[in-house]
């Protein structure tokens, strides 16, 4: 160990938040889920809302998110998290109900629940991890899978003829009057992590101020599903995923951001 003499509590600048439990996450090495979990937990800690936060975990890779968030949690049926969150937040308006969903959960099986919760302007936070694949079930094609991308159910690459187009659900949701804040971020570099945390903070602040639905998409890697190393996967993500899913705010304070 280097510089052991400075390892003292007064010199501490970064430590895992206690809003995450000590359970070892089951995610693959280098997966963006863990990073995003941590950012949500840090925001909850910084806003001092651990007692008010209610996490809705999805079906997908983050099905066990409730084991990691040290807040009261519920496990949803596949795609139904926004419906659950709608009811909970309406009956407990001072809480911070948030859903944590992947692309299969939010943009395929849960499309109706997602669109209608956003359209009603439910005062909830949606954290949306988009890695263009179904990780949990073994790397099948997702609604967000890119054209040409090989997955277990598009083994020769996704084609428009067979599978239609990648779904830009976040842009679609930004069109709905109920969404107040819609942004797309990533967690592959320290700078990106800082921005994403800011976005998540903004989402929870909006909720505190009862502004309606806030959605933070995090474009993430699925190195196992993409069959790359974590570092390669992040590079591939920047070169390919960001072209279809550009990083940045899409809607701020209820207004679409002009490009």
């Amino acid at each position: 160990m280097f510089n052991p003499d400075i390892i003292k509590p007064e010199n501490l600048v970064y430590k895992k938040t206690n809003v995450l439990t000590d359970a070892v996450m089951h995610y693959c090495p280098g997966c963006g889920h863990g990073t995003t979990h941590r950012l949500v937990a840090e925001v909850i800690e910084e806003m001092d809302i651990q007692d008010k936060a209610i996490c809705i975990a999805p079906v997908g890779c983050s099905v066990l998110a409730y084991n990691y968030f040290n807040v009261d949690s519920l496990g949803a049926a596949h795609g139904r998290a926004p419906a659950m969150a709608s009811a909970i937040q309406r009956m407990f308006p001072d809480r911070h109900t948030f859903t944590y969903q992947g692309d299969g959960d939010l943009a395929a099986i849960g499309t109706a629940e997602t669109i209608h919760a956003c359209n009603r302007g439910e005062n909830i936070v949606i954290i949306f991890i988009n890695n263009g694949i179904y990780g949990m079930t073994g790397g099948q094609m997702a609604p967000t899978t890119l054209i040409g991308m090989k997955t277990a159910t598009s083994p020769y690459g996704r084609t428009v003829e067979l599978n239609g187009y990648p779904l830009q659900i976040t842009e679609l949701l930004a069109e709905l009057p109920g969404t107040y804040y819609v942004t797309r971020q990533s967690v592959h570099t320290a700078a990106a992590v800082r921005k994403t945390k800011k976005a998540i903070r903004q989402a929870f602040e909006n909720q505190k101020n009862k502004k309606g639905t806030s959605l933070v998409e995090v474009v993430s890697n699925c190195n196992s599903g993409w069959k790359m190393t974590p570092v390669e996967a992040n590079k591939w993500m920047v070169e390919n995923m960001f072209a279809k899913y550009p990083i940045g705010d899409i809607k701020v304070d209820g207004e679409k951001v002009k490009k």
């Binding site: 209610i54 809705i56 009261d72 519920l74 949803a76 049926a77 139904r80 419906a83 659950m84 969150a85 709608s86 009811a87 909970i88 309406r90 009956m91 407990f92 109706a112 629940e113 209608h116």
Partner: peptide
């Protein structure tokens, strides 16, 4: 009491599931 018309029965029952869970 909260009353909400959902977009489907699938959604209604999951609103119930969420509400029951809290």
């Amino acid at each position: 009491m909260v009353v909400l018309q959902a977009e489907s029965e699938t959604s209604s029952i999951n609103m119930v599931y969420g509400g029951a869970g809290v």
